[in-house]
Write a protein that binds this DNA or RNA. Structure first.
Lengths: 238, 238
DNA sequence: GATTATTTGTCCGTATGTATA
DNA sequence: ATATACATACGGACAAATAAT
């Protein structure tokens, strides 16, 4: 390292590590050499290496686990949002394995927000589907979906069987549907979401609220999906 | 409250409060009566009211501050993302007052990510602008922007004077620019962002990484903006 | 600056109804 | 029928943060 170059040693080390990670020297989820090992290589004190690692951990590029080591954060999956947003397609396109399972379901009266989004009267019967979707076996998103109950009588069974909203809707004559609007916010994961998504307490979820409409423009689904914040990056092309 | 109606008391109270908020009995940012007061009105124990408030707080409808009271959450500002995303326009359109100020700036060599996004060689000179944008005086987003240095020599001064990226770019002959791609993720706010955005420790930020291009399609800006998670809702129309 | 009142947060507990094995 | 677990509802005491005096 260049001592006295006007750039702090720990910054130089951080940038070197960042470059190595970007270049693939340390792949995603790989373990970095121990702090002592790195200190030896860079010929600096271990604390200088720690400062560099701390800076990269703050950016969520590294993840330091006491007693285990320091790891390169796993690359978040790209989740493009557009007119035709389909979980299975998005995941498959990235050569990963999609999966979905039913957590719970119920039939209930639509509250104000759901009614507005589905364009029905408050109190109308709606089917609520609680689902968990995974990528390569790792849970990615926990979603709550509402559908007009009269139009989709066998929806729960169809989803439980196929693990796919798209396929379940196909069985009810919905050959195609498109996304009208997506609203994105973020918050700390609730206890239930944290458990289903295997997140530590205090972890962050990206919340996506979306309305899907059929070919005639009628709303058929309102969904509130909670994505594990560090496992996804939502992409909007404009 | 209807005891023994098959619905737990705290749920009934929560739904009553939710309805009152929706109806405008308690406007945004208004203070609710104290827990003791509400317990008296509903003729239940204070803990039962707390349970109801807790449920609504989990949904970010209420916000309870120890020693101050319980408040209706302020409605998050809608932040539509599209080809022509302009902070000032978005805020003004919602009849609110936009503001921007320069936090810091520097000229530096582009790192790998910035170079790739701006379509230049790593190490090329770039201007880095650290800005803070507010709505009605409340800080909303803390952004870091990079611009090719040779093309925008007086950019820092222009932004410091106008408080607007759009206006600063106009002075450099950019009559119009459009957004190419936006990548959205979420994480816990770092110490610096938390301070500038007046966020409590552990609060959540929405991170938006975006590339803007000029009329000829050349990248002119790469920006990483951190939005206070509970003060904004990003809207994607498709 | 110190004091006090107000308000929410966190404990301790008791009792009861409901669902389940 | 019995036992167990769980959610609900209530009561009280105190801590911690805030606002007003």
């Amino acid at each position: 390292m260049d001592r006295g170059a006007g750039v702090a040693l720990w910054r130089q080390i951080a940038e070197r590590l960042r470059a190595d990670i970007a270049a693939g020297v340390y792949p995603h989820n790989a373990r970095l050499p121990s702090e002592a090992e790195l200190a030896g290589r860079f010929k600096v004190n271990r604390h200088t290496v720690r400062r560099a690692i701390g800076a990269l951990a703050e950016e969520n590029i590294l993840r330091a686990d006491r007693g285990r080591g320091t790891f390169v954060a796993s690359r978040p999956i790209d989740y493009p949002i557009g007119r035709r947003t389909r979980f299975s397609e998005i995941v498959s396109r990235q050569k990963r394995q999609p999966g979905g399972r039913l957590v719970a379901s119920s039939e209930e009266g639509a509250d104000i927000l759901v009614a507005e989004k589905l364009g029905i009267a408050p109190g109308s019967r709606v089917i609520r589907l609680e689902t968990l979707s995974a990528v390569d076996g790792v849970p990615l998103t926990r979603a709550t979906s509402w559908f007009p109950a009269e139009r989709f009588p066998g929806l729960v069974a169809a989803y439980a069987e196929t693990g796919s909203i798209t396929k379940a809707l196909e069985r009810h004559g919905i050959a195609d549907y498109t996304r009208l609007e997506t609203r994105i916010s973020a918050r700390v994961a609730g206890a239930d979401d944290a458990e289903h998504l295997s997140l530590p307490p205090g972890a962050v979820v990206l919340v996506s609220e979306a309305v899907n409409i059929d070919a005639e423009g009628n709303p058929i689904q309102f969904a509130r999906a909670r994505f594990a914040g560090d496992r996804v990056q939502i992409v909007v092309e404009s």
